[in-house]
Amino acid sequence: MKTVLITGGSRGIGAATARLAAQAGYAVGLGYRQDAAAAAGIVREIEAAGGRALAVQADVGHPDDVERLFDTVQTGLGGLHALVNNAGTLERQARVDELDAARLQRVLSTNVIGAFLCAGAAVRRLSTRHGGPGGVIVNVSSRAAVLGSGGEYVDYAASKGAVDTLTVGLAREVAAEGIRVCGVRPGLIETDIHALGGEPGRVARLAGSVPLGRGGTPDEVAQAILWLLSPQAAYVTGTTLDVSGGR
């Protein structure tokens, strides 16, 4: 049984990915920052269906937490074969001229520093250069990286642009070491992250701008992630897949 570690695994896209990964036969490590009850609920669901799962509290912006997360999952579930670098946050909608340094540090700590720290921790465990078995890293970005999110959260969009660059650069670094690095860019997806931005109904407001005419579901993004993790994507690396209904 292969093991996948999913950061931000207690809600939204992370939780949907955890469920699908377990159905696909993975042992699932869940990283979460705050919601222990939600993470425990996902673990119970997976175990009730006959799978294996483990939830670990960690703030991905803190190096010690990241190392503890990876070590705990690797020991508790037996090895590591894949990372879904999904943990992310945003703050209330605002213009750039309204942002302060404290907000920027919070967003970038999770979305950029956290993504880099988790990617590095995965490489140290997966890379054949380090004695690992090889594996796959899937970074969860956002269409905001391309669209910019003007008037809403340019800081979040910029942080996801950094994730896109990480995907390309890291893929080229570790391709010869048995690791594929890919990304997904979700578009307007029905998750509670929009409530963090102060507009729970944002998907409904913007659904008309989507060529397919609706928001997406976490499961639709999770299906793309599972494909990128799978042997069917064996010749795919250094690319990011838009899951956005054409927007």
Rank of each mutant, 00 (worst) to 15 (best):
T167K: 04
Y153G: 14
Y156K: 12
E67M: 02
M1I: 03
G169W: 07
T89K: 13
I193F: 02
R92N: 04
I42K: 03
D71P: 00
G135T: 12
A82M: 11
G148H: 03
D65E: 10
S244W: 00
R68D: 05
E220L: 02
A119K: 01
P218R: 10
G79W: 07
Y153S: 15
G150H: 11
D242M: 00
C118E: 12
H62R: 15
Q105W: 00
V112T: 14
A87C: 10
T75W: 01
L104A: 15
G25K: 11
I189V: 15
I13Q: 05
L126W: 09
R180E: 05
T128V: 06
I137W: 04
E152P: 00
V96T: 14
P63K: 07
R202Q: 03
R106L: 10
E173D: 15
Y32W: 11
A49R: 14
N139T: 04
T191M: 07
G120M: 08
E173W: 08
L80F: 11
Y32C: 08
R52W: 00
A24G: 02
V203G: 07
I42F: 00
W227H: 13
H130K: 03
S244D: 15
A144P: 05
E45V: 00
A15E: 15
A207W: 00
G131H: 09
S127G: 08
A162W: 03
A94E: 11
G161T: 01
R106G: 11
V243C: 04
A175K: 10
D164C: 06
A40L: 04
G169I: 02
V56L: 10
K2C: 00
V136N: 11
D219K: 04
R92T: 12
T191I: 09
V107Y: 05
V184T: 12
A175I: 12
A48M: 04
R125S: 13
G215E: 12
T7Y: 07
Q223M: 01
G187P: 02
L229R: 10
V236Q: 08
R44M: 06
G131R: 04
G245D: 05
I13W: 10
G8T: 03
I179F: 13
L5P: 07
L108V: 13
G88K: 06
I113T: 15
L166W: 01
G187S: 04
